[in-house]
Nucleic acid binder design. Structure first.
Length: 870
RNA sequence: GGGAGCUUAGCUCAGCUGGUUCAGAGCAUCUGCCUUACAAGCAGAGGGUCACUGGUUCGAACCCAGUAGCUCCCA
């Protein structure tokens, strides 16, 4: 059967993934082997595969497949998180299309729609991971909103509350007016934008005197309750004890003084809007001025604002500037750049807002669990790259309370219950809440408590993930959690360090008394060539699925792995995927070659003489590479490991070994040689398999004929105890002969006559036939020869005559160049050896080494001179 | 404003405890080849004052200080 010269991955990938699943290759259950566990950082259930996922999950798959092959019981637990804000937004949008307004339906009805949505679209990203070849144990797929995991979340909330680690407080939060919910500090992205600074006059009552305030947010003046200057600012001392009138609303407010105000910025006076700015809020508390909330939850002006009610904040900004100008309150507008917070989820401009929220008291939490910091700092948990320990340290030591409530319906509803006065109890059910309540309030006869309307932050689910996926809360001693926990590696992006890594560590120590994982591998952020983060909104991200269609999953995996050392940004470029595709094609063609050979039982002279030395050489290359690759795996240097395999296959196997083993055109190969070739090829495919699972599986099956075994179930090759084959001189000679052809424009078809002047016949002799074969040499003789092009292999002089090509003049340039280099080298070595301080300070073995260098250089120079002048 | 990190070939990156066989790899570039496994290829080649300035040292890409530029985190 004819095999195509181009590798076409599509059918092959579909075929193998199905067979892997049918044969339950990725299934893991506890047994006697050493476990190797990764829990997937659960992707957002609304998500579709993007470049970051690709990289992240490719790395996890490489680690898991490798672990499986080295004999561990590898378990990769997949799943998704419920992504409250994102999912709720999707569901609201879907309802809107159906003509349903969220406000018009009940909470239960809404959740019904949400689950419907989740069932329909929630599995997309997991299906995409299968395309990528991910070897997850799909039977273990979990979801943060499923019943059992949700129960754990609620139990943990109650438990932490009982331990005094959770409280409800009135705080300034980051309000997302599009999502209509608070978001955590970590979910706010600050972007530099072009803004205007508005200079507004606040008049002293019944006077022409005024204070000029500069603000970027004039619409908030409706909530102003003071203006503030620096007490050391001479310009404003005369306003001590005075009041001013807030324009538009005509509210009389005090002028207060605080060192916080920067006299240099704007006019040196700050308007104080305690309800809408964190700094103002703090100043408001300090100076005891009230807060007026002038916005509704959707970012429109509230009744309390008194003006522009119902108008959007940005429309108001424009309108108010106009109105202030008309009334003579606006002095000027000035263009400035400032940083504005945006919601990571909805991209709406964050509105600081005071509201009642639930918090985890992080100071207390950390005091209970000092291991959260210590384990990372003392490498009980390793970070790759370790430099990120600094960031972690900094964050943990300056940690702030964690706002865990979200004003949404999609999520675990907070198990807090209130009576009509706002007294609160925390309990799992209404019945339990009543019970607790009655105890707490002297057998009160209250029959009904209302549950908190809010849900818990999604991260409050996913921080439990490494435990909850093994049901470690529900059943803390079950076989799975005992076997798989602590897990081994977590692979995630540095930007997730606080969302997941830190918090998983926190829950690990609080609830298991143990770390959740031993290694954290931080991938880079995938950027385009212009160093812009790849994102949908920028439209600079290629669709990974289309890429896999065009190039194959293996190529895409290689493309993302190649330039991705831990912690560095990945500058993604299609040329890397092309390199992956080209590599697949190269392997494919080697496979075509090998499968195309006819065999014979009788060995030609060539096979008699060179099969075994060729094989020994390849084995020693293979051994060396295995050792190197293993080291790379130990250090999580996956791109280096991949590069080592790449070079082993392309250079050593294809460019050298196959060329050596290849029969002349049209002739059969010696059967024993073919057996060896296939064995080598098979081992190469094993080494490649964690990186490129599909093509390696396909080829191995082809090589073995009909076999029911899978690479996944084979053992990772171990380096054999072989002595190294010394061949450098032979290979250099081949390169030299080719090179001289190239330099002089001699066709490769012209055969060469080569003579070598050497004291070391052995190595050339043992590779003689190979040398002739690979560089089109007709005769190889030993001794001096004045004719021909001259070259050097080490200090052996080589003369090459190309049959049918006339040399114009004797060429000694290479000899001279080499002598020059060696003379310089010798000089520098001698300089050291004659330096008294060097001799006094350098270690003895170093001096020994230098002396050796000196001797080597001298003898080489001498040999070369002889050759040059003889 | 506070903290951390980075700067090595055109690009992306290696370079472990300072010692010319350490100045490297892959890609890209250039030259010559359609040599029947592969032009998604073959055979070769060129390319770097290791950001800058000082210092320590017999010796610095590597250690120290300062400067410049970039990135990230926090405010």
């Amino acid at each position: 059967m004819e095999i195509s010269s181009k590798y076409s991955p599509k059918d092959i990938e579909t075929k193998w993934y199905k067979l892997w699943l049918d044969n339950k290759l990725f299934r893991s259950v506890p047994d006697n082997r050493e476990p190797y566990t990764i829990v997937i950082p659960p992707p957002n259930v609304t998500g579709v595969l993007h470049m970051g996922h690709m990289l992240n999950n490719t790395i996890q798959d490489v680690l898991v497949r490798h672990a499986r092959m080295v004999g561990k019981n590898a378990c990769w637990v997949p799943g998704t998180d419920h992504a409250s804000i994102a999912t709720e937004a999707k569901v609201v949008a879907m309802l809107k299309e159906k003509g349903i307004n969220k406000k018009d339906i009940s909470r239960d009805e809404f959740l019904g729609y949400a689950w419907e949505w989740k069932e329909k679209y929630g599995g997309i990203i997991l299906e995409q991971l299968k395309k990528l070849g991910c070897s997850c144990d799909w039977d273990r797929t979990r979801f943060t909103m499923e019943l059992s995991l949700s129960e754990s979340v609620i139990d943990v909330f109650i438990d932490l509350h009982n331990k005094g680690l959770i409280y409800r407080g009135s705080r300034m939060v980051n309000w997302d007016p599009a999502g209509k919910t608070a978001v955590s500090d970590e979910e706010v992205i600050y972007k530099e934008v072009d803004s205007k600074l508005y200079y507004i006059k606040y008049f002293v009552p019944n006077s022409d005197n005024y204070i000029m305030v500069a603000t970027t947010r004039p619409e908030t003046l409706l909530g102003d309750t003071a203006v503030c200057a620096n007490p050391n600012d001479e310009r404003y001392k005369k306003f001590i004890g005075k009041t001013v009138i807030v324009p538009i609303v005509n509210r009389e407010v005090p002028v207060i003084f605080d060192e916080y105000v920067d006299a240099e910025f704007g006019t040196g006076v700050l308007k104080i809007t305690p309800a809408h700015d964190i700094n103002d809020y703090n100043l408001g508390i300090k100076h005891n001025v009230p807060a007026i909330d002038c916005f509704n939850e959707d970012g429109t002006m509230s009744d309390a604002a008194g003006f522009y009610i119902g108008m959007d904040r940005f429309a108001v900004r424009k309108q108010i500037a106009k109105d202030l100008a008309e009334s003579g309150h606006l002095e000027k507008e000035e263009a400035i750049k400032n940083k504005v917070g945006y919601s990571e989820r909805t991209d709406a401009v964050i509105e600081p807002r005071i509201s009642k929220q639930w918090f985890v008291d992080m100071k207390k939490y950390m005091a209970r669990n000092p291991e959260v910091l210590d384990s990372v700092m003392n490498d009980e948990i390793n970070f790759y790259p370790p430099k990120l320990k600094n960031t972690y340290n900094h964050w943990i030591t300056n940690i702030k309370d964690w706002c865990i409530s979200r004003q949404l319906w999609w999520g675990q509803r907070i198990p807090a219950w209130y009576d009509e006065q706002g007294n609160t109890v925390v309990a799992k059910t209404h019945e339990e809440a009543l019970e607790v309540y009655r105890k707490q309030f002297n057998n009160s006869t209250v029959q009904h408590l209302s549950q908190d309307e809010d849900v818990l932050d999604t991260w409050f689910s996913s921080w439990l993930w490494p435990i909850s996926v093994f049901d470690g809360f529900k059943d803390p001693k079950n076989a799975d959690i005992n076997y798989y926990y602590p897990t081994n590696d977590l692979v995630t992006a540095p930007e997730i360090m606080f969302f997941w890594v830190a918090r998983m560590i926190m829950s690990g120590y609080e609830y298991r008394g143990q770390k959740p994982f031993s290694n954290v591998y931080y991938t880079g952020i995938v950027r385009d060539k212009l160093r812009r983060k790849m994102s949908k909104s920028l439209g600079n991200s290629p669709d990974p699925l289309l890429m896999m269609d065009d190039y194959g999953a293996d190529a895409v995996r290689m493309g993302s792995l190649l330039c991705s050392p831990a912690g560095n940004d990945i500058l993604f470029d299609m040329s890397q995927v092309e390199q992956g595709r080209n590599f697949c094609n190269k392997i494919w063609n080697a496979y075509r070659l090998v499968m195309g050979w006819e065999t014979t039982e009788t060995a030609t002279e060539y096979y008699k003489n060179y099969t075994s030395i060729t094989q020994d050489w390849m084995e020693s290359r293979l051994n060396k590479a295995i050792v190197e690759i293993n080291e790379h795996f130990d250090k999580f240097r996956l791109s280096d490991a991949l590069m080592a395999i790449y070079k082993l296959i392309w250079d050593d196997f294809c460019s050298w070994y196959l060329e050596m083993m290849k029969p002349p055109y049209g002739e059969p190969i010696y059967s024993e040689a073919l057996v060896q070739v296939k064995l080598v090829f098979e081992r190469l495919m094993q080494l490649l398999h964690p990186f490129m699972p599909f093509i390696s599986e396909e080829i191995r099956h082809g090589l073995l004929g009909d076999s029911n075994s899978f690479i996944n179930n084979t053992s990772w090759p171990t380096p054999a105890d072989l002595k190294e084959v010394e061949n450098d001189a032979a290979f250099e000679l081949i390169a030299l002969i080719r090179n001289k052809r190239n330099e002089n424009g001699i066709s490769p078809k012209l055969a060469a006559k080569v003579s070598i002047s050497t004291n070391n016949l052995g190595v050339y002799k043992s590779f003689e036939g190979i040398i002739k074969k690979l560089s089109n040499v007709e005769s190889l003789t030993f001794g001096k020869n004045d004719k021909g092009l001259k070259g050097l292999v080490g200090k052996d002089e080589v003369s090459i005559e190309y049959i049918g090509w006339e040399m114009k003049q004797v060429d000694n340039s290479e000899l001279e160049k080499e002598i020059d280099y060696l003379t310089g080298f010798l000089k520098s070595v001698e300089a050291k050896l004659t330096n008294e301080k060097f001799m006094a300070n350098a270690k003895p073995d170093l001096v020994e080494k230098e002396l050796q260098k000196k001797a080597d250089a001298e003898s080489k120079i001498e040999t070369l001179r002889k050759q040059l002048f003889s």
